[in-house]
């Protein structure tokens, strides 16, 4: 910590990059080891491909059908992004309303706490009855699963401000809007981003589950199809693509976090910040 404080900003950046590269290198090594062991294991023990295909075969089959997979990936990605964005747009203003208004808090907050406990995935079949097989039920499930983590974390962020900071603000005579903009919003930001990241991780799960229930396109649909046909190499390929989509969403949010609240991210870097990579 002391060393970091004494080095110029440029060095801090270089050091952080080095830490990151080191982290990535370890992960790369562990993945390579995993794939090599997997490949050799499958061949040595002559495991049938429909049970566990070697990674080389997964790759081979994927290269033949990648365009098809990509088409379905696009469908799922759209469900994730649209559902997630709507969740963000609805939940943050709602958190602000709850944090600022006693009436809204008394009425909406208990409801949110109750609904949060309901297993949202169980509602998915109901959505099919209500909204059919198209885009809407998937979007709704993504929305629903993303909404609660964001709203709960944001409320915590807006409310956790300590009394003394508010006293300082009031002693300046600043109005509500000024206090919101300069103090409460920035104070809530780290908490909001915690919620945003949890929601990002959940959103791809939500899209796939919704597609499992009923659909004729998307990665969830594709997964079920390949599974039914015992095309196990393609099942693996689809799962990997799905994971990559999830990772991209997650890291997109983390990148935005780095841009919006660099002061918070930089405080974490020396400690647990790299744990997620």
């Amino acid at each position: 910590m002391t060393a970091a404080a004494d080095t110029p900003a440029a060095w801090g950046g270089v050091r952080r990059l080095l830490v990151w590269v080191t982290g990535v290198r370890y992960i790369l090594v562990s993945f390579i080891v995993l794939f090599v062991v997997w490949e050799i294991g499958v061949r040595v023990f002559a495991v049938p491909t429909y049970l566990l295909p070697p990674p080389s075969l997964v790759w081979l089959e994927f290269t033949e059908r990648w365009l098809h997979v990509l088409k379905h990936t696009w469908v799922t990605a759209e469900e994730i992004v649209v559902g997630y964005v709507i969740a963000v747009v609805v939940s943050i203003p709602m958190a602000i309303a709850i944090a600022y208004s006693r009436v809204v808090e008394r009425t909406a907050y208990p409801l949110i706490v109750f609904l949060q406990i309901v297993p949202k995935i169980a509602i998915a079949p109901l959505f099919i009855i209500w909204f059919g097989f198209g885009f809407t039920p998937k979007l709704l499930l993504v929305f629903l699963l993303s909404f609660f983590p964001i709203v709960v974390a944001s409320i915590a962020g807006f409310k956790s401000i300590d009394e003394e900071t508010m006293e300082l603000a009031r002693s300046t005579g600043a109005g509500t809007w000024m206090i919101f903009r300069k103090i409460r919003l920035p104070h809530a930001m780290p908490s909001i981003f915690t919620g945003l990241k949890v929601a990002a991780a959940l959103s791809s799960t939500a899209a796939v589950v919704a597609e499992f229930v009923a659909s004729d396109k998307g990665l969830g649909y594709l997964l079920l199809q390949y599974n039914g046909d015992l095309q196990t190499p393609m099942v693996f390929a689809t799962i990997i693509v799905l994971s990559i989509v999830g990772l991209i969403v997650y890291y997109a949010v983390e990148l935005i976090e780095r841009l919006v609240i660099p002061w918070h991210v930089s405080q974490r870097v020396d400690g647990a910040g790299m744990g997620m990579v």
Binding site: D162, E164, E167, S171, T172, G173, I183, P186, M189, W263
Partner: peptide
């Protein structure tokens, strides 16, 4: 209500960590 034509130093520094 809050008197504003003053400067206050509280017992704790109360600095904003993002500034």
């Amino acid at each position: 209500g809050p008197h504003t034509n003053l400067g206050i130093v509280f017992q704790k520094p109360i600095l904003l960590e993002w500034r």
